[in-house]
Design a binder for these strands. Structure first.
Lengths: 229, 229
DNA sequence: GTCTATATACGGATAGAC
DNA sequence: GTCTATCCGTATATAGAC
């Protein structure tokens, strides 16, 4: 699978995400016309990510957000009940989509090596489509409420376990070398995260997500499978 | 070299760091008695790291800092001219120490493989001794002034280049396999960063820095050297 | 050198008009 | 649904006493 294919396969349009947020938060969103909500949530989310990823969510004032979205503060507060609420929405949405897409990507594969490649490629491609969300989610995790922080940690561990389980399965079937599966999974996560955390560095070097994916897999497979020849 | 040996070899005591900060900032620090300054800077830095790493530097108020250090706001402002100044001090100090220690670690080695191991181990051990500083430096980079941000990026690229140069040298001498040296260096950095960014995860698993180092090197060498046998 | 008190600005959030 | 005006708390930074 290439990135282009991935994009064709799953449409995670910003619009669709906002539609889901609306459905999930019908109660706390005062505005009731779906199309209006979707349109405005899109503006709010994209503006929040843009400002926060430049100077941090705490440093973003509601007045900043109003300027960027061209909405008044009164209007903004029709879509969430507090600034913290906005933060939680973004985090929740990122987690939900990741889990859904990632699980979908591996359910068709039975061979551990293929499964592992699918999971890694999917995660990488997803983080490319939603780079600002992923960056935001990582950098702002510690500003969440205690409850939300626990969810963020659980999500991180969930993904790690997903990789670790594939590795273990591969080892028991003899297609992977015996390696510490949890540590290997941790390193995989670290490599995946580097792509979206240092996105601008890689952009400057004209490195495509496919090139990064290829390199990452080559690096990993040298360790868990051994030399090709 | 083990972590215990590293600790013995270089003493990066908090005190010594604060003494250096004092010397470099004589002009902007109003208090003139060296011992007083060193003692208080130590309290200020450690409190800043403690609070900021929990809830972010922006969210830390000067009143928070006063409570934690048991100093009044008036006293605090004798040691720096603004909150931003305090941030810059911490960043600058982290960069300086890293560069110094890292360069020192590789100057004695001539064999590329040994040099690479030394650089990786040193970086890992240093980030262990100064974990709060490294975490802070990474997470708060985007809150710096434009000028300071450029310095932070330059520092990141400097370290990466240091690794890339060792890799290139090893390749030209035939002791490393031909791999993309820049990308490999990026991945090395990502793995090193994961250790101090997810320190609490690894602590919960009772993984020591030496175990992580061993694993990291094993992983890397499978790629750039090939199987041991 | 350190303290308390305060100047001044800006933050999040809401009320009520349209 | 959206806007403007405003409440009220808290932020950084400093002045001046001790």
């Amino acid at each position: 699978m290439t990135y282009a294919e991935f994009q064709r396969q799953i449409k995670i349009s910003r619009q669709q995400i906002c539609r889901e947020v609306f459905v999930e938060n019908r109660d706390s969103i005062r505005v009731k016309k779906e199309n209006t909500v979707v349109k405005n949530l899109e503006r709010i989310f994209s503006a929040t990510l843009k400002i926060s990823n430049k100077k941090g969510f705490q440093a973003m004032s509601m007045r900043d957000l109003g300027r960027e979205t061209k909405m008044s503060m009164g209007a903004l507060y029709s879509y969430f009940s507090s600034k913290e609420d906005l933060l939680a929405m973004l985090q929740h949405q990122r987690r939900t989509i990741t889990r859904r897409i990632l699980e979908g990507s591996i359910e068709d594969e039975s061979d551990p090596a293929a499964k592992l490649r699918a999971a890694i490629l999917t995660h990488l491609y997803l983080s490319e489509v939603m780079q600002p969300w992923f960056y935001f989610s990582y950098m702002e995790a510690k500003n969440l409420s205690k409850r939300e922080q626990e969810l963020a940690v659980a999500s991180e561990l969930y993904t790690e376990k997903l990789f670790a389980d594939i590795l273990k399965q591969g080892q028991s079937r003899g297609c992977f070398l015996p390696r510490d599966s949890q540590l290997t999974a941790s390193i995989i996560k670290a490599m995946l995260q580097d792509w979206y955390l240092k996105r601008s560095k890689y952009r400057k070097r004209n490195l495509s997500v496919d090139q990064y994916a290829k390199f990452l897999l080559q690096f990993l497979e040298a360790f868990i499978i051994g030399p090709k020849d």
